[in-house]
């Protein structure tokens, strides 16, 4: 049963990166859209994201719930050592979730819109960076197996070049994914041109950031490259993702928007899969060379069965409805531009 649970865990992580990531990304785009197109951008975002806004963030809840039920040691250790970046990530989640719906549902339109937008776009930076910092800190191997002094236990493991660069790498991925999504939503006009240009630019930024992550790891004395290249699956996945980058640009046409989305989704999938494959089954790498694996102190079989059944039953309930939400709306209303 643990494989069922792990499947749901990995799927939820990927879907959160994809859907939640696109959500975060549209907030980052608010910094980048020219002032005269900002209002239009907000409309496109509200139209495209509004219905699925809450649902996109549920994947994170699923991840957390699976962690503390099935892998409680992992959950508690991550919570202890990465308390600070987790808190920052959560503050970001709270502020942007509220700001987005306040902006959308406030019945009076006045100067307050400016503040909602500011809070929304600022927290859209904070959460992805903190998310990347957390992922990097788990791999880097600076976490002590037992708490020692404050700095080396609660700050140093995540406050370093590798973690920060990874934070910005995650930010660039999310922003790129959002760009791909927006390009498909806005099919005509100046803003579309603007999206296309920026998404291509973000594509390059993302690739550069990806390379920088490996250099930053080196800088911290961590041979990330060796870990990726010695793992056959991760190597294949990375190679496929890299090759597919060359196929991306010709797809920036309205008629090919679904192929563009699929390809970008595929790239993200490969990156997430490679990352998970490299670390699996370890989650935390301690500074004494030991690791905490998912299977250590795993919940007993009875709990895993209950959880697995709950996930399967739950998924059969909510997936069809989620599909309905995603696709019927697009079909019923056509495109925003018609």
């Amino acid at each position: 049963m643990e494989w069922v649970v792990l499947f749901f865990l990995a799927t939820s992580v990927f879907l959160y990166c994809l859907l939640g990531g696109a959500d975060f990304g549209v907030g980052v785009h608010e910094w980048l859209v020219p002032a005269n197109k900002k209002r239009r951008h907000e409309e496109v975002v509200a139209y495209a994201m509004g219905p699925v806004w809450e649902a996109n963030h549920m994947w994170l809840i699923i991840v957390v719930v699976i962690l503390f039920i099935a892998f409680p040691r992992v959950y508690s250790q991550v919570s202890i050592y990465l308390h600070i970046p987790l808190t920052l990530m959560l503050i970001g989640i709270i502020i942007r979730g509220c700001a987005f719906s306040f902006r959308h549902y406030d019945s009076v339109e006045d100067g307050s819109r400016k503040y909602y937008s500011w809070a929304f776009s600022f927290s859209s930076l904070l959460t992805p960076i903190a998310f990347g910092v957390i992922i990097a800190a788990l791999m880097l191997g600076k976490i002590p197996p037992q708490p020692t002094d404050y700095y080396s236990t609660y700050v140093q493991p995540w406050c370093n070049i590798f973690s920060l660069v990874t934070g910005f790498f995650v930010l660039s991925i999310f922003t790129f994914i959002a760009g791909v999504f927006m390009v498909g939503e806005e099919t005509i006009g100046d803003l579309r041109e603007n999206y296309v240009r920026r998404t291509k630019f973000l594509h390059i930024v993302m690739i550069i950031m990806g390379a920088l992550v490996f250099f930053a790891a080196r800088f911290e004395g961590f041979d990330l490259g060796a870990r990726f290249f010695s793992h056959p699956f991760a190597l294949t996945a990375m190679a496929l993702a890299t090759v597919s980058h060359f196929l991306l640009w010709p797809l920036f046409r309205v008629s090919r928007r679904w192929r563009l989305r699929l390809l970008a989704g595929f790239q993200l999938f490969m990156v997430v899969a490679a990352w998970l494959a490299v670390i699996f089954p370890d989650v935390i790498f301690y500074n004494n060379g030991t690791t905490l694996t998912l299977f250590e102190h795993m919940a007993p079989e009875k709990t895993l069965i209950a959880l697995g059944v709950a996930l399967i039953v739950g998924a059969t309930l909510f997936l069809p409805l989620l599909g309905y939400l995603f696709f019927m709306f697009k079909k019923a209303s056509g495109n925003l531009n018609n």
């Binding site: 649902a55 719930v65 409680p72 007993p300 709990t303 959880l307 739950g314 909510f318 409805l321 989620l322």
Partner: peptide
């Protein structure tokens, strides 16, 4: 976690349904 997780996993499902239905 492993003991009282069951209602949380069901809650996660119910909450997911609520978010979708609200959308």
């Amino acid at each position: 976690g492993p003991i009282f997780g069951m209602p949380f996993s069901l809650e996660g499902t119910a909450f997911f349904l609520e978010a979708i239905a609200l959308g």
